[in-house]
Amino acid sequence: MTTIQRVLVYAGAAVVTAYFLYPLYVLLLVGFAPVQYTLDKIYPAQFTMHYTLANLVTALTSYGFIDPLVKSLKTAFLVGGLSVALGFPAGYGLSRVSKKVSSAASTTLFVVNMMPAIVIAIPISTQFVRLGLYGSFVGVGLAQELVALPLATFIIYGTFQAIPRELEYQARIDGAGVGRTMLGVLAPLAKPGIAAAFLLSWMLSWDEFTFAILLSPVHPTIPILIYHNIQRGNLLASTAFALFLTLPVVAITIMLQKYLKGEYLSGGVKG
């Protein structure tokens, strides 16, 4: 690289970094600085030396945070669990069927992934009312699974493609049944992929907005609680919840960096 190119690369990296980090910086600033330095000002300072935990403490203790937190956690674990329960066999099956069958099945999953949540949620809501699932974490989780399952399946599918079939045949010859082969031999080998699928599904549910607001508006998850508080003008509370929602997810995103590759994100579609 010439010097000019080097300068250009650093300048570009600096601009992109600023665009990606500035909003997070603002969120932290509003979250941790006293409100007279941030939202109470028409032109808030870009930097301050005054910090406080009072915003967070007030928000987390006096705005009914516990119920939404519990609901969000229950939903996210349900979605993660469903993704493994359905995605593990599906990913295994996909890696073993003929090319024609596997591309038909992954096309179906890919189409599901693109289905608008709002279109599906409207008819589902009346059925959930009838089944007593409307407003429950189970109902929200069952719907959110539609977003998570295709991605989880593709990740596990990718993992199985890398596991030699001979290992499986060996186990079968040694007398292990299908169940034991899957749980005893294949599951441990596919563990990283399964863990990634679980975490990604957990995270998709934790962040999900559309299904959650359409199917459980009165007993909200955290994202909906954030929205309700913006509507009511409780901006500091919504900021505190937003920070709380974001921290685990940013950690998981960085952990999953390896799996967030173009191929998985494009859902198996080749250009």
Partner: peptide
């Protein structure tokens, strides 16, 4: 750094940008 925004929930992005681009006057 480049992948961090991916992990931020849409509604969180919305809160943040409502501080950066609030209705007039002012904002970050």
């Amino acid at each position: 750094l480049v992948i961090i925004p991916m992990g931020v929930a849409t509604v969180v992005a919305a809160v943040t940008f409502s501080f950066i681009f609030p209705p007039p006057p002012g904002g970050y």
